[in-house]
Design a protein around this nucleic acid. Structure first.
Lengths: 148, 148
DNA sequence: CCCATTTATATCGCACACGATAGAATCGCA
DNA sequence: TGCGATTCTATCGTGTGCGATATAAATGGG
């Protein structure tokens, strides 16, 4: 069995680097999201809804790769902020469809500008940016594979 | 201003891919950690302590890039499991030094084997593995930069 | 030497994230 | 058609993560 991923130093583990990069992103975004009154997961939901709203909770969860029980309380909170409305679907009474309010749409437009700050961090190096996205997408697929 | 990081689809945002990879790692590790009775952050703490114990909470927090208020309750929990002991430092009564118990050390040795499963996922492709660690380390540094 | 400042840790409140569970609506098959 | 199985969402419990705050110990300048 290959041993190259075995290292006593957490900083040389891939899992730790993903974990730490996640926190680093949160810390980078926090001051940018604070004026909008959004947390990072709320930001992602607003972006997803801006692309397409009128969707059920499960559809959102699938797109963001979260469980619906994670989204339920989050949606209730941003509904309380007046950013979305939730309505039982007519065609399937089990479903709860989520719609952006006018206020929510305005906020989503402002939120969508935030990732431009990342391009600035990359100093215009688009290739590196795209390669990292590809690498992380591949990683996800490898980790999701049942066993091998 | 460069706009290449601007995308209406969350799945094409770098921040989302880091976020999703973090969750994917958690889901991959969960069944491997469950037999050890550890959560993922507890796993990291055990690895860090296995490399060097008898350290203060702040030292651990710095290595894992967390706040000490995140570690305090976590350490209390794994102390309750009998994996570590906490003792006020003699030389500085403010500090609480953390030591692995014998049981904790045994568990850390077993935990340290888990990342080998990742090498298997990478199908022996060590170069890709190392390049991703480098890329994520660079990303962290870019995100930590004050402004530019 | 004394007291204001700093440092180290802990506690609290809030918001995820998920497994387990509940409850309602829909589906599917006999 | 009827009823068990499935699907969709919500609630609960536990464990992070962090900002704000508290407390005690160490430090340092007058």
């Amino acid at each position: 069995m290959q041993k190259f991923a075995n290292d006593p130093d957490p900083r040389r583990l891939l899992c730790f680097n993903v974990y730490a990069a996640h926190h680093a992103f949160n810390r980078f975004y926090q001051p940018l999201l604070e004026p909008l009154g959004l947390t990072y997961p709320q930001f992602l939901v607003m972006i997803a809804l801006h692309r397409q709203d009128g969707r059920g909770v499960g559809s959102l969860a699938e797109e963001l790769m979260l469980e619906t029980n994670t989204l339920s309380p989050l949606l209730k909170r941003i509904e309380g902020m007046g950013l979305i409305t939730r309505r039982r679907s007519q065609e399937d009474e089990r479903r709860v469809d989520v719609f952006l309010t006018d206020q929510g749409r305005d906020l989503a437009v402002r939120a969508a500008e935030i990732p431009d700050c990342i391009a600035e961090c990359f100093d215009g190096n688009e290739t590196t940016y795209r390669m990292m996205i590809n690498a992380l997408t591949n990683l996800r697929q490898m980790l999701a594979k049942p066993e091998e």
